[in-house]
Measured scan of single mutants.
Amino acid sequence: EPSQADLDALLSAVRDNRLSIEQAVTLLTPSSGGGSGGGSMDAKEILTRFKDGGLDRAAAQALLAGRTPA
């Protein structure tokens, strides 16, 4: 399960175009075949909204942490 520091680094990389959204989703869902963790939004949607400015960093982190299976 990614830590808050991992999520923060991942969000920074996506925002700075050092990591594509697809690459980030793969890192967030290493063994689930890329499927959502059952959250209301999947990781790709969360990351896309964050990059487009629709979500701030704290909200994106909380959503990603919340949808990651324990």
Rank of each mutant, 00 (worst) to 15 (best):
Q61V: 11
P69S: 11
G35F: 04
K44A: 07
T26G: 11
R18K: 14
A9E: 14
L63S: 05
A59N: 06
T29M: 08
L11W: 02
A5V: 12
S12A: 08
L11Q: 01
G54K: 15
L63N: 03
A59F: 04
E1H: 11
G54L: 15
A43V: 10
T26I: 15
F50W: 14
D42M: 09
G39H: 13
G54M: 13
R18S: 09
L27R: 06
L7W: 14
A59T: 14
A43W: 06
G35H: 13
G53F: 04
L7R: 02
Q4I: 15
S40T: 14
D16E: 06
R15Y: 07
L47F: 07
L47I: 05
Q4S: 11
S31L: 14
S3E: 09
S12P: 02
P69E: 15
G34R: 09
P2W: 14
S3K: 10
E22M: 06
L55V: 03
F50K: 00
L19R: 02
A58H: 07
A60S: 02
T48F: 03
A60W: 00
G53L: 03
A65T: 09
N17K: 08
M41P: 11
D56I: 03
G35W: 02
L28Y: 03
E22P: 04
A24V: 05
R67H: 11
K51C: 04
A43Y: 14
V14K: 00
E1V: 11
I46S: 01
D6Y: 14
A70T: 03
Q61Y: 07
Q4D: 12
R18Q: 11
A9Q: 09
A13S: 05
G35L: 11
S12W: 04
L7I: 12
A24R: 00
G54S: 15
L27E: 04
D42C: 14
L63R: 05
T68A: 07
T48R: 08
A58M: 10
V14D: 00
G33K: 12
G34K: 11
L55D: 01
N17G: 15
P2E: 10
R57P: 05
G54Y: 13
G38R: 12
L63M: 13
I21N: 01
P30C: 11
T48K: 07
T68M: 13
A70W: 00
A24N: 00
E45S: 08
E1S: 13
S36I: 08
P30R: 12
G37T: 12
K51N: 03
G34F: 03
Q4Y: 15
Q61L: 15
D16S: 07
D8W: 08
G66T: 10
G39Q: 10
L63F: 04
P69N: 14
G38P: 12
I21K: 01
R49D: 03
D6M: 13
T48V: 07
G33S: 10
Q61D: 05
K44C: 06
I21Q: 01
R57Y: 15
V25M: 07
L7E: 02
E22Q: 05
L10S: 01
R57L: 13
P30Y: 11
G33V: 10
I21C: 02
I46D: 01
A60V: 07
G37A: 10
Q23T: 06
G33Q: 14
G38Y: 07
A13E: 04
Q23D: 13
D16V: 03
G37H: 11
